[in-house]
Write a protein that binds this DNA or RNA. Structure first.
Lengths: 102, 102
DNA sequence: CTTATCCGTAAGCTTCCACTAACCGTAAGC
DNA sequence: GCTTACGGTTAGTGGAAGCTTACGGATAAG
């Protein structure tokens, strides 16, 4: 269950906002901090969490570090959800059928 | 961004375990508590959070309440992830191409 | 070499969350 | 009606997470 990190990372609203901004285009840390209502160190800490969850990648660009979305983390979450997607729909159909018989 | 509830709900390892168990088959509260290393009230609280996030459904069955997966919450998360899925892959391809030119 | 910019890290504080224990309500069985 | 089983709710507590301030490291420019 390695995706626990990814879900925990996306639980924070600030980190969700970071992912949304990086989804539009790659950005530097200070650039992200300017768009968010928190300080730059806070953004840096959030990026560390997102990086540990394989949700973002970083690339050194002079003194700046450009962050971008990492498809790996998103893929893990998608795979986990798909494990229950079919089963949940089957249970749903079964429950509906059972109600129809009564 | 209503999926904030869903992500926050799945951030907890215990709640993830509950979803996994319910993914196998619908269960009652006491049945879940027996499979988890926490007390029954804790399971009840977790189920309330999962229910508010539209991740589980409950059905009264005599004195027992049967909980099962609700596809609604999973669908919201899938939709949110898909918003970045294509874009992330495009950024990935673009970065690879840029490296190739250098 | 010095300065400036950009970023990560450590310490401290505050706030929130998960857990247990105790209680109350409800449905089934005698 | 009484008892038992099953669950939801509340109060209280311990621990974890996020934020800011201050500091240190690395790179580019003068």
């Amino acid at each position: 269950m390695t995706n626990a990190l990814a879900f925990a990372a996306l639980a924070e609203p600030t980190r969700q906002a970071i992912v949304e901004h990086l989804g539009a285009r790659p950005m530097a840390v200070g650039e992200l901090a300017a768009l968010l209502p928190v300080s730059r160190p806070a953004v840096s800490q959030h990026l560390k969490v997102l990086k540990d969850a394989s949700l973002v990648r970083d690339e050194a660009r002079g003194t700046r570090r450009i962050y971008s979305i990492d498809p790996a983390g998103l893929g893990q979450i998608r795979a986990w959800l798909d494990r229950f997607w079919d089963g949940a729909l089957a249970q749903y159909a079964e429950a509906a059928e059972r109600e129809e018989q009564e």
